[in-house]
C-alpha cells in the first residue's frame, strides 16, 4: 500500500526562528493520524505546510519535501487545486459572511459547479456528515455567523467536506465545541475514515487515544515519536518524554 503523504526532512523557518527541525513521517491512506504535543511544538505549522496556507505568513521558508501521492506539493503549479484536495478545519470556527447554504456551497462553486440540484445534494450530505443538518435544515438561508460556536464549528467541518477532500486536517477542532457535540463529531470522523485520510491535531491526548490509528508526538519542532496509538499510550513507548506528556507529567 502506497503512502498518502510522505514528509521527509521538513524544516520550516519563520524569519530566523526555526519552527520545524527536520521532520520525517509517512501518513497511510484511510487512517486517522493523531498529532499531539504542547503549544509551540509545530503541529499547526505542519498542517499549514501540507495545504500550503503557510504562504500567507510573511517571511517563512520551507526546506525538505512533502509528497502527496508521490508528487511534491511545492512542484504543483495550481495551488488552488491542491487545496481543494485537502479539507482544513481551524481551531476557532471562521464563519464566512454568507448564509449557511452558501458557506457549504462555496467550495463546489469555486470549482465551477453551478447546478442547483447538485449543490442541494452536496449541502445536505455535508451538513448531515457534520451532524448539523437536523438543526439547520429549516433555516439554510440565515447567516452562518449567527449560529452558536459549536454549530459554527460543525459548519466549518461541513464546509471542509464539501469539496470531497482526500485528506481532512483538523486543527484542535474541539476547542470551541461542547463535549457532547465533540463526541458526535468524533463518531462522524470514525465513519469518514473509510473515505479519506484524516490528520487530527489535538491538545486533548485522550481524543487522540479514542480516535487515532497511529499517533505522533511532537515537541519544540521535533517529531519525538510516531507509532500505533496503543503503543504511544502504553506503559512503555520508545521515548520517556512521550510517556511523561501522555500521562500529564508535563505540558
Amino acid at each position: 500500500m502506497e503512502n498518502k503523504i510522505e514528509i521527509s526532512d521538513l524544516k520550516v523557518y519563520y524569519g530566523d526562528k526555526q519552527a520545524l527541525n527536520g521532520i520525517s513521517l509517512d501518513v497511510y491512506p484511510n487512517e486517522i493520524l493523531g498529532i499531539i504535543g504542547p503549544a509551540q511544538s509545530g503541529k499547526t505549522t505542519l498542517l499549514k505546510v501540507i495545504n500550503r496556507t503557510l504562504e500567507f505568513t510573511q517571511d517563512f521558508s520551507v526546506e525538505g519535501s512533502v509528497k502527496l501521492d508521490g508528487v511534491d506539493i511545492y512542484s504543483i503549479g495550481d495551488v488552488h487545486a491542491l487545496r481543494r484536495r485537502i479539507g482544513m478545519v481551524l481551531p476557532l470556527p471562521v464563519g464566512l459572511p454568507l448564509s449557511i447554504y452558501d458557506n457549504v456551497a462555496f467550495a463546489p462553486r469555486t470549482s465551477g459547479l453551478r447546478d442547483k440540484a447538485e449543490l442541494d445534494v452536496i449541502v445536505e450530505r455535508c451538513l448531515t456528515q457534520a451532524a448539523l443538518w437536523d438543526e439547520v435544515k429549516d433555516r439554510l438561508d440565515s447567516l452562518g455567523t449567527k449560529l452558536s460556536g459549536g454549530q459554527q464549528q460543525r459548519l466549518t467541518i461541513a464546509r471542509a467536506l464539501s469539496h470531497q477532500p482526500e485528506i481532512l486536517c483538523l486543527d484542535e477542532f474541539s476547542i470551541a465545541v461542547d463535549p457532547i457535540t465533540t463526541m458526535r463529531i468524533e463518531d462522524v470522523l470514525k465513519d469518514l475514515k473509510n473515505e479519506m485520510t484524516i490528520l487530527l491535531v489535538t491538545n486533548l491526548v485522550q481524543q487522540a487515544k479514542r480516535l487515532a490509528n497511529r499517533t505522533a508526538f511532537m515537541l519544540n519542532g521535533d517529531l519525538i515519536e510516531i507509532d500505533d496509538t496503543d503503543v504511544i499510550f502504553s506503559e512503555n513507548p520508545a521515548e520517556k518524554s512521550t510517556y511523561d506528556y501522555v500521562n500529564g507529567n508535563f505540558g
Binding site: T53, F56, H80, V94, L96, P97, F106, T156, H163
Partner: peptide
C-alpha cells in the same frame, strides 16, 4: 477583513480573485 476569513476561503481552494469578490469586498 480578518486574516482568518481569507485563510478559510483559500483553504477551500478559492483563488485570489474569488476570495476578493466573494469575501473581502463584501466585508
Amino acid at each position: 477583513v480578518d486574516l482568518s476569513v481569507r485563510e478559510a476561503a483559500y483553504a477551500l481552494g478559492a483563488n485570489r480573485w474569488q476570495v476578493i469578490t466573494d469575501h473581502v469586498f463584501p466585508r
